[in-house]
């Protein structure tokens, strides 16, 4: 996958997301900021992102996805 594909897939599910992708090939770090994370535990937030890449993680197309999540600050 390319970083652009990773970002596209996230924004297809979380349209408001600000996404930063680093890494390459099958090993990415994504930073995702979305209002959809409000009130969610870290585990739930990671599940939301993992679920977007379920097929890629299962097939091995992605074998490592490091995830950082944030809610947009209203400050």
């Amino acid at each position: 996958m390319t970083p652009e594909q990773v970002e596209e897939k996230i924004r297809a599910v979380l349209p408001d997301a600000r996404v930063q992708v680093s890494g390459e090939e099958c090993n990415f770090t994504v930073e995702v900021e979305s209002a959809a994370f409000a009130g969610k535990s870290p585990l739930q937030r990671h599940r939301m992102v993992n679920d977007i890449f379920r097929n890629e993680l299962t097939s091995g197309a992605l074998h490592a996805l490091s995830i950082k999540t944030r809610v947009p600050s209203d400050g």
């Binding site: 599940r47 993992n50 890449f53 379920r54 993680l57 299962t58 074998h63 490592a64 996805l65």
Partner: peptide
């Protein structure tokens, strides 16, 4: 294990 709690990694 990935199926146990539906966590892929």
């Amino acid at each position: 294990l990935p199926k146990y709690q539906d966590w892929p990694t």
